[in-house]
Amino acid sequence: MSLAKRIIPCLDVDNGRVVKGVKFVDIRDAGDPVEVARRYDKEGADEITFLDITASSDNRDTIVHVVENVAEEVFIPLTVGGGIRKVEDVRTMLNAGADKVAVNTAAVFNPDFVKEATDRVGSQCIVVAIDAKQVSAQGEPLRWEIFTHGGRKPTGLDAVEWARKMVENGAGEILLTSMDRDGTKIGFDIALTRAIAEAVSVPVIASGGVGNLEHLAEGILEGLADAVLAASIFHFAEYSVHEAKEYMAESGIEVRL
């Protein structure tokens, strides 16, 4: 009887449609975020995260409608990230039905943004997304830096220090993605996850690199994350969220089943 570790499926949304394809047999339209979200909810997802990857700012409103539609029928916490630049964007997402908003690049270029946003809407609504890459060479003490633009641009900011600073500024949660592992399916960067989880007082969501259920359990047991986020292993229905939870429970992790 205690707080459960969370499993969070993440949906990449482009122009209002889920991309990367989903192959659930019982889904009529695999690109419809509402159908996919409903399915994850049914499988026991603890939260759902939407990442808006729409390139054109003309089409940014589509994600707002996605959130509105999902919030009408899926009654678990919803997080939205991608393209959040102003406090006004945060408000728009919350009003559409999001419970939390993830910010990253905006926070890198204007650290006060997190302070401003949490003052307005409360820490519990602001997730700071951190994209980190290892910069230490072999043999050196491990060190990670913040990267922007999908991991292409270094910022020179130390990831652990940055996480601490974001929490000081009011972040209610950290969404930590290893840019070295993202898309590799070889597992989380455990050392990075653990370093951040131990450095901050707020919950940490581990992301980037999940290829199987063992990886999810490692993120919690070895990385000390409070939640694990994964996209592709759920998208392609390699595993259901329910199977993931059963595996975690067998590994001795407290989950909501």
Partner: peptide
């Protein structure tokens, strides 16, 4: 962690 965030009994 604080906040106490997530699903509890």
């Amino acid at each position: 962690k604080i906040p106490h965030m997530g699903w509890n009994n």
